[in-house]
Amino acid sequence: MTSNSRTILICSGKGGVGKTTLTANLGIALAQRGSSTVVLDADFGLRNLDLLLGLENRIVYTAQEVLAETCRLDQALVKHKQVPNLALLPAGNPRMLEWLKPEDMQAIASMLEQRFDYVLIDCPAGIEDGFKNAVAAAREAIVITTPEVSAVRDADRVIGLLNTHGVNPVQLVLNRVRPKMMANQEMLAVDDVTDILALPLLGLVLEDEQVIVSTNRGEPLTLNGTKSPAAKAYSNIAGRLQGEDIPLLDPSKERSGLRATVRRLMQTKIF
């Protein structure tokens, strides 16, 4: 029983920018760091969280049966074998979308809040009904985006809606950062994105091939404590959420040598 449980929506507006990957990795990292955590797949249309966590073969019941009261909550929760502090509440059948209402998501979230320190909600892309249902259950949000114009624009839309729904705080994760492109000013800089969206930065995740490898295996990067840049980033995000003071990565420091120094100099804001 936890009284100060945190329900955090992980959303982006644009599809495919890394919501589910962040939810899975953050879930593992928070649980490993001692917080009881549940990840809730709110993407009923295209569920994937089970697959990223490698739990797809262990699902018996879903949120659907919990809502219909044909099973108990603990029967539907899938516990992670290696990280027993982490559970998944799987998304039900896509047909659920026909009748699911914001109140249903609120009901699920309040059940979960009684048992877990962290409730992470993997939001569907878009700003339609799926988003509206999920946002109703959220208290806080993490908006994830990539440094690309379309993703930032969609993130801005979502931030506006989160504000309207009274979700607070809202923090930003910038994903798929390529230090070299940023250094050459061929990619929006970190400051550009945080200035434009006016959100505090919770973390920076570099573009990292290991993300794909880990997805293939159904073992999120944070599970094996790998030293890959993305794994480090995800676990730093977990630490910051828990209140640890961990400095943010500086993409320009990722590269050294004279050329990198000159590139850094060229990025200096003069006015």
Binding site: V149, Q185, A189, I196, I270
Partner: peptide, 30 residues
């Protein structure tokens, strides 16, 4: 404006694409 933007301007070069992205975003978001 960054130092690079200034140098590009002085040399009459096309601005770096990040700078174009920033300007376009600011307009569309307004």
């Amino acid at each position: 404006m960054t130092l690079r933007d200034l140098v590009d301007k002085l040399l009459g070069r096309q601005p770096a694409s990040a700078s174009t992205a920033r300007d376009r975003l600011q307009l569309v978001l307004a």
